[in-house]
Design a protein around this nucleic acid. Sequence first.
DNA 1: GCGACAG
DNA 2: ATCTTGTCGC
Length: 226
Amino acid sequence: MASNAAPGLTHDWPTTAAEARALQDTIRKDVVVAPLGALPIRHVAGVDIGFEDQGATTRAAIVVFDADTHERVDEALVRSPTRMPYIPGLLSFREVPGALDALAALHVTPDLLMVDGHGIAHPKRLGVATHLGLASGLPSIGIAKKRLVGTHATVPEQRLAWTPLVERDETIAAVLRSRPRVNPIFVSPGHRTDLTNALDWCIRFLTRYRLPETTRAADKLASHNK
DNA sequence: GCGACAG
DNA sequence: ATCTTGTCGC
């Protein structure tokens, strides 16, 4: 098992791009893309990570919802020192440590994480949502606003229409029209979920906006506390 | 060699 | 991501 498998254990977190890339090749084998199955999902969390002080401080926001009633049951906003610069493909090493701190500050541990950013729709199938799932041990899905890798057909304008995002003959995400006439979002499995689960849970929390309520709530919690 | 490049 | 004002549109 990877040495960073438990929340908060980020003492040996990589600080350089070379270390991070080496670690990616080790932990990518531990990623599980499979249906949630019969696992009871009672609490779903929206996770959003941002930065302050020109990147020196990481700000992680998490809002936990009741999966059935969508009632807001818990939240956490935690600031911590940033360990890595932003490097395309290595975003998780910049964001996951802060997210783990916020996860540890919750009173209600969520059963599913909905993370801002890609899950397996990543060059090494290790986007921030996948990495956070792996590091926390929790099932996760990724919801991103922009493409990182892969190609896809034009998505029909009808709400909830979607086309597969493909790379190397592999479907890695669904490009979903969450709102008519608005740029689609990229929904991908993170860890311990599959594409169907990811689409399913994302759609359950969609209302009239481009992003699901989980993501919007975490986003607001963070920005309202600047 | 020339772009592209989550947050 | 973040730095930033007004502005077009439902």
